[in-house]
Design a protein around this nucleic acid. Sequence first.
DNA 1: TGTACATCAGTGAACGCGCGTTCACTGATGTAC
DNA 2: TGTACATCAGTGAACGCGCGTTCACTGATGTAC
Lengths: 214, 214
Amino acid sequence: MPEKEEESIPSELTAKKPYHHGDLRQALIKATLELVDSTGPRGFSLAQVCRQAGVSTAAPYRHFEDKESLLAAVSESSFALFRQALLQARDAGAGSPIQTLRALAGAYLDFACNNQSRFRVMFSSGLPKSRFPDLYKSARSALDIVLETVSECQTLLPPESKRLDAYTLAVSLWSQCHGLASLLIDGYLKEISVEERIPELLDLLVDRYVGCEE
Amino acid sequence: MPEKEEESIPSELTAKKPYHHGDLRQALIKATLELVDSTGPRGFSLAQVCRQAGVSTAAPYRHFEDKESLLAAVSESSFALFRQALLQARDAGAGSPIQTLRALAGAYLDFACNNQSRFRVMFSSGLPKSRFPDLYKSARSALDIVLETVSECQTLLPPESKRLDAYTLAVSLWSQCHGLASLLIDGYLKEISVEERIPELLDLLVDRYVGCEE
DNA sequence: TGTACATCAGTGAACGCGCGTTCACTGATGTAC
DNA sequence: TGTACATCAGTGAACGCGCGTTCACTGATGTAC
């Protein structure tokens, strides 16, 4: 028969929790991301989120219209962070166009790998565009960074890189980043130990955008 | 007050449906795919599947252990079809290595676009590898086609294409196909009307695998 | 500075619902004799 | 060929459960006077 703890009440129980949370909105987003990590973007329940955040099941309705709105807020904030990361990579380097593209591709991959839950919500949540038009806008404003940067870089590159229009090039770079990120996150590249070859892959995919220069 | 139809009983009601279904297993897989199309790989319910297949909610348990097993069967059959499509593309051409790679990339994209539900289940269902080890094997046996074909093609190509090992090249080709397919399916390429440029994109991504030749 | 009051973020109990799964059963099919 | 019976794919009613959402409420905060 196990002894009962009688000596002292743990501090997290004595410390009376305040009636108001402080920043429940952010806490709910954080809890959602943690659950998405194990259940996928559609497998979590609002009740779980509330338990995780230590709050009653009615509390979220002060901040979000319903469950889907919470997920949309998670997605929108993720696209905003993503956009920031891409912008930072584009502006930080200030080196050659090739270096800028390389930095952009690296940032894309880094964001995906370090924010897997966010990446999943962004690209696999299946939220209806019709209900959340702003969400789609914030997605586009992040992805446009890729398109714009490739266009800008292309104007700075030697003429032989210009036989293709910038959009085609941009989509090519973008989809390669996106595919690599998705396959990494889903674990399909684990067995063939591709992770240490990522720098090489990034160089490969960027170098080829300027024709033949090595 | 609407009139009631009294003239004749529709044939689908008079035709007594047989007690045994015939091929319920396949019918359940088909119904699941149709629902996945609108709800995502985790949003459908077994009850909906049964309604769609015109069968009681207990019927699936003659064919699948539980709901997750049904989804795993959908995924496994999809990887098998995918593998078939890739093999066919690889073997049909019998042209130059470049043509073979081009055909493979085209088949990857075609499969994804013509079987969007299957593609979603394959890559976004989040089924636990631990419970369905065979599923992961069938995934690998499909994806290995890409790796093998790139290796084979590379041995037939001029030496300047060999400065990178085949795995790195294969992963690069693979991830580009995968990213392009994912972005197309998720609708992120619709506004910039990239769809008519797909052949060009495919040429672009394949041509670059052999160094500089144009 | 002190008090009254509006505001609003939280509670917790309750709801109706659809879900996944089980059960004893039924009816069609195939096979042994 | 005809009959008895084992097999098994289906039924339909029932279950317990967790879910999303609502409601009247409570208690903390900020502001007007």
